[in-house]
Nucleic acid binder design. Structure first.
Lengths: 222, 222
DNA sequence: TATCCCAGTTTGGTATCCCAAACAAGGCTA
DNA sequence: TAGCCTTGTTTGGGATACCAAACTGGGATA
């Protein structure tokens, strides 16, 4: 794989895992020494990440895209029509094997699994459901939305009951798809998105102090 | 503005106006002489355009993204839930002034206007409607979808009646938003997307020969 | 002491250089 | 003559050189 893509992937991972703080400045020279490559591939990776809105220009400088918690509502509003459409289409189009594969993914994440695992599966579930719709544009949009959500979800303080509930909701959505009940699946999906958004906002609000202590600007959080 | 952005915008325009044929190969050296800049900003522009999926890699080479007419259905399927949501939200949120601005845009495009004008307004209308929703994610998604559609729309053979009908449908959607009738607006928007897709597909099917003559691969057209 | 200014440094933007891989054409061989 | 190999050319990937603008810090000045 080209050096540029390696740098892109590593940098992307560092950003999404909050290894690099939101709003943090990135100088090309620092990245040069960090990744032991010249500025050419580094610039290409930055331009690419800019397209994914994980990195942004601030005047002439590069910065890690800040987290704007104010967009959480808009994000849910965006996801609901897309994901309800996705589950409806999934009912009509998904094969039993495809559905089983998603079910397996859920099963593979047991309650003892590390937090990274829960985080990843919690994101991938929605992307995989979108994939069942067979519509590549829906998949791409959901993937982007979940990426956008990803860092805020790392900040969430996960309690065992809330995690359990999200889990049940995932299972219910999948169950309705399996039972070929598109309207119930759509209702469940919409409710799940709303519930998840509320849980996230509540958690972040209760933890404002903790967020500040960890150096995260809580812009946009009402 | 930086040279890179200039090159990006020009190249983007050339691609969207079919000045550069879909599938055509782009060599960095040719672009270098064409834009009288060095390869550094050109490569940055290409990476950026790759993110917008207007340019693509073909092995090590760069090519203009081919038009895949097969994605027209999926594109309509993607737009319907988003645009129906957009008009519903617009009813709740858009100010009279914002609505009037869109109306003015439609008025400004009289029947004697050049085709470029019709093409542009026909795209911008949907983006502006999305903007009335107040949801930036919807705006961005619709903008992307309309970009994706743009080149196929250039290939369409526009008849006066079909253009008139699209026009009436735009007015009707806006009318229902103005009258604050979200469900009627949503129904109208969905119908419009379906109708437009059908008109486009019919036109392209009837003109397969013409497309081939103009050197466009008609991949994906059923 | 507060403010302004200027030189030195750092940064991103651009141009150019080098290289290895892909490609193409021509000639050699079976 | 058909297929293969060789070799010269072109290409994109990466490294480096150079520049102008932005920033920084320290010292002169009011």
């Amino acid at each position: 794989m080209s050096q540029m893509l390696q740098i892109h992937d590593q940098l992307r991972e560092m950003i999404l895992s909050l290894d690099l703080g939101p709003g943090e400045r990135l100088t090309e020279r620092w990245l040069e020494s960090r990744f032991e490559g010249s500025r050419t591939p580094i610039r290409a990776a930055l331009v690419r990440l800019e397209g994914e809105e994980l990195v942004r220009r601030d005047g002439r400088n590069w910065i890690v895209a800040p987290i704007d918690l104010g967009e959480l509502e808009a994000l849910a509003e965006f996801r609901i029509p897309l994901e309800t459409t996705a589950v409806r289409l999934a009912c009509a189009r998904a094969s039993a094997a495809d559905i089983a594969a998603v079910e397996e993914m859920l099963d593979a994440c047991q309650s003892g699994a590390p937090r990274e695992e829960w985080h990843r599966v919690g994101t991938d579930f929605h992307v995989e459901i979108a994939r069942l719709s067979g519509n590549p544009f829906i998949v791409k949009a959901i993937k982007g939305a979940m990426t956008r959500l990803s860092r805020a979800r790392w900040l969430e303080v996960w309690t065992e009951p809330s995690r359990e509930q999200a889990w049940r909701e995932h299972r219910r959505i999948l169950g309705f798809i399996k039972a070929n009940d598109p309207e119930a699946a759509a209702r469940e999906a919409a409710d799940h998105i709303t519930d998840t958004r509320d849980r996230l906002l509540r958690s972040l609000n209760e933890d404002r102090r903790g967020l500040r202590a960890r150096g995260f600007a809580v812009i946009g959080l009402r």
